[in-house]
Design a protein around this nucleic acid. Structure first.
Length: 226
DNA sequence: GCCAACGTTGGC
DNA sequence: GCCAACGTTGGC
């Protein structure tokens, strides 16, 4: 299958085995690595606020060709549409925070914005949805793949992915510029996009959205603003 | 192509 | 466990 386009490097991690839900302490965003998650847990159960759970997401993908170890990282919204069954696995994510969202929180039927990044006009182009929950990302086991991770094993995979299916293009492409403008305005007015991960966690390729953020962005789809 | 922001690594 | 060096992301 054609590789998707989800960057982020390989690192080292000590995997925490068999943690039970009850013992996991989440801050609003999961920890950056298993190591720091363990460190945070070890500090005791001083819960840092209510565990945030999400059911809406934004996935970044590059619509333009860019080669990494001879492999094209391009995966546009149209590429998703023309995939078999209009469905693709979201492989190649190599960032712990993003991995944790993929592995732990993205559930069947969850709504997803498809975002075009690293291109002339970045922005949200369409909607897709989760059609298969977390399973091991095969590219970590393939030495020829740019996202190969020699520190991972089939017995104890480090990286996970979900499958997403094309839903629809937005009626209006929502540009990064428009989102940023709104985000800045909402920072002053305490509006719904004041904490949008696109700006507060800019480098994250798998981003959570609150219901409020999701709804607001959908409204922008039919607003007059340029 | 530049480079700011930020995640990871590894020495100490 | 700190933190400097390094590498990557992704807008511009």
């Amino acid at each position: 299958m054609a590789p998707k386009r989800k960057r982020q490097e390989t690192g080292k991690e000590k995997r925490a085995s068999k943690r039970t839900k009850a013992t996991i302490v989440h801050s609003e965003f999961p920890k950056l690595s298993e190591k720091s998650a363990k460190a945070a847990s070890a500090k005791g159960n001083q819960t840092i606020g209510t565990p945030a759970t999400y059911s809406h997401w934004l996935l970044k993908s590059e619509p333009n060709s860019r080669f990494e170890n001879g492999v094209d990282m391009k995966f546009s919204f149209d590429d998703l549409k023309s995939s078999p069954n209009q469905t693709a696995c979201w492989d190649g994510v190599r960032n712990y925070q993003a991995r944790n969202f993929l592995r732990d929180q993205m559930k069947l039927g969850h709504d997803v914005f498809f975002y075009h990044s690293n291109c002339k006009e970045p922005g949200i182009i369409g909607q897709c949805k989760v059609v298969k929950e977390s399973y091991p990302d095969h590219t970590q086991f393939d030495p020829k793949d740019p996202h190969y991770d020699r520190t991972s094993s089939k017995d104890n995979p480090k990286w996970f992915m979900v499958d997403v299916k094309y839903v629809r293009p937005l009626d209006k492409f929502i540009t990064l510029a428009e989102l940023k403008k709104t985000h800045k305005a909402h920072q002053s007015s305490a509006g719904p996009l004041r904490n949008l991960a696109l700006f507060t966690k800019a480098r994250l390729s798998v981003q959570p959205l609150s219901q409020e953020e999701w709804d607001y962005i959908l409204k922008m789809e039919h607003s007059d603003e340029s």
